[in-house]
């Protein structure tokens, strides 16, 4: 009994401590939203007022109607959607073959995939820029979409998921006369749902948040995605902090809302990536 009460008190204290830690983690977000509704003169007020004296929605009106944010939004949606569709179709096919089919040269090809994974994007910026320039896709969204679709890490990740499906199941499909493509679509894919969710959520947030690629490959304002758009917006609004916070809120909102609704899947997916990758 005594042990139990001590245990309970310990748990309650720890819950309080961890809640405080959690609040500390989201404090920048709360502060960002609160500041985005403030008048410029109140931004640096102290003690910090989380609920502003006067709610000012003018910053949002400015972000939405007097800047290119709507265009940045559309660009981000377009790039992310096309990348995701291509990625899911092409990567899962290849990963299926690497995981479950026998063909000559498989090991060598896969080893070369693994080898390229050791070369980070950051190292390839310049040759890619020269090369994309030569291909004529610099300053188009293709410079972001195509490299996003063909991704060694995602192939590697999905191969792991497909390998973990018992081989008896596909053998049974084969005996029933199903071709490889039907086996893949109707038998293997439905069994790899958690793998697919992982692929989609991971690629989605990676693509949506990508900064370095659009920074280098895109240079006209009408093609900017949200991350670069926000940077240009920040540079042009100098010390209008409340306005910048409204821009930051607008750029973060879609992912945060999606995350709040599907947090279980997000967290599972990212843990999967961390453990398998």
């Amino acid at each position: 009994m005594k042990y139990k009460t001590r245990h309970l008190i310990g748990r309650i204290t720890m819950t309080a401590v961890m809640t405080a830690f959690g609040m500390l983690c989201i404090f920048p977000f709360i502060w960002m939203i609160s500041t985005s509704f403030k008048n410029e003169v109140d931004v640096m007020e102290f003690p910090i007022r989380i609920i502003p004296k006067v709610i000012n929605t003018g910053n949002y009106a400015k972000v939405w109607f007097e800047s290119n944010f709507p265009a940045y939004y559309l660009n981000s949606i377009k790039v992310t959607a096309l990348t995701l569709i291509g990625d899911v179709c092409i990567t899962t096919c290849a990963a299926y073959a690497f995981a479950r089919l026998k063909f000559r040269g498989k090991e060598i090809i896969f080893a070369s995939y693994l080898a390229t994974m050791m070369v980070p994007v950051q190292v390839m910026l310049l040759p890619k820029y020269i090369y994309f320039n030569w291909m004529g896709i610099n300053n188009t969204h293709w410079a972001l979409i195509l490299p996003g679709i063909f991704n060694c890490f995602n192939t590697f990740l999905m191969r792991g998921f497909f390998e973990s499906i018992p081989f008896e199941i596909t053998e049974a499909a084969k005996i029933d006369g199903a071709g490889q493509f039907r086996t893949f679509i109707q038998v293997v894919l439905p069994l790899a749902k958690s793998g697919l969710t992982t692929l989609v959520l991971f690629s989605f947030s990676w693509c949506w948040n990508d900064y370095i690629n659009p920074l280098i490959f895109i240079n006209s304002d009408r093609l900017f995605t949200l991350t670069i758009g926000l940077q240009r917006f920040q540079e042009s609004s100098t010390t209008h902090y409340a306005l910048i916070m409204a821009g930051a809120t607008v750029s973060l909102l879609p992912l945060i809302v999606l995350f709040l609704f599907a947090q279980r899947y997000f967290i599972e997916s990212f843990a999967n990536v961390g453990i398998k990758g």
Partner: peptide, 29 residues
């Protein structure tokens, strides 16, 4: 050791999901 594990986990993970560029400007201020 904690009650309400799920919301606390969510709060801790939220920064990672958000783009560095957006939160960089928050931290700048």
């Amino acid at each position: 050791y904690v009650f309400f594990k799920v919301p606390i986990r969510l709060m801790t993970f939220m920064p990672y999901i958000s783009s560095i560029v957006s939160v960089a400007y928050v931290w700048m201020i």
